[in-house]
């Protein structure tokens, strides 16, 4: 099955802000981030259907042109940026700023049996859906003399 990068787990070393601090009031001690590129990591669902491996990421507020999907070896990476949602109000004073903005990335380790080429993606209502076709399993017959 597809799994998330195991480095994401750990004690005082975290890279996923959103998951760790649902609420600012809960943060008590410094945490060391492992990630160079990103400030936040979106939540995702991963499931398999008969034909596909489906990945869905929650990316509300991210514009389509700020998104990129890449595959290298076993790893599928989605990166992008959520721009400041308040940009339209030049003068504003925040009472609360909980929505993560800035760069994000999500790495997913792909299982062997999905295609690296047949990848389709749709972005709608703030959800990015990526479908990877499962490669038909090749049966190799072995002859016995």
């Amino acid at each position: 099955m597809a799994t998330e990068d195991p480095r994401r787990l750990g004690g005082r070393v975290r890279s996923d802000l959103g998951r760790l601090f649902h609420d600012l009031t809960e943060i008590v001690q410094p945490v060391y981030s492992l990630d160079d590129e990103s400030v936040w990591h979106p939540y995702g669902d991963i499931y398999e259907t008969e034909a596909d491996l489906v990945i869905k990421l929650e990316l509300a507020g991210v514009s389509k042109r700020d998104l990129a999907i890449s595959v290298s070896g076993d790893q599928l990476t989605v990166t992008g940026v959520r721009r400041d949602l308040g940009e339209d109000d030049a003068k504003r004073i925040y009472l609360k700023m909980e929505i993560s903005h800035g760069r994000f990335s999500k790495e997913i380790v792909l299982p062997d049996h999905v295609s690296r080429e047949d990848i389709r993606s749709v972005y709608k209502d703030g959800i990015l859906e990526i479908r990877l076709a499962k490669a038909a399993k090749k049966v190799v017959e072995v002859k016995i003399d």
Binding site: F21, L24, T25, V39, Y94, K96, M97, E98
Partner: peptide
């Protein structure tokens, strides 16, 4: 450092999460 999250408390103080 980037201010990642921010919350204003009723007593006027501010709590920040910075990276």
């Amino acid at each position: 450092a980037l201010i990642v999250k921010m919350l204003r408390f009723p007593d006027g103080t501010i709590r920040l999460l910075v990276q």
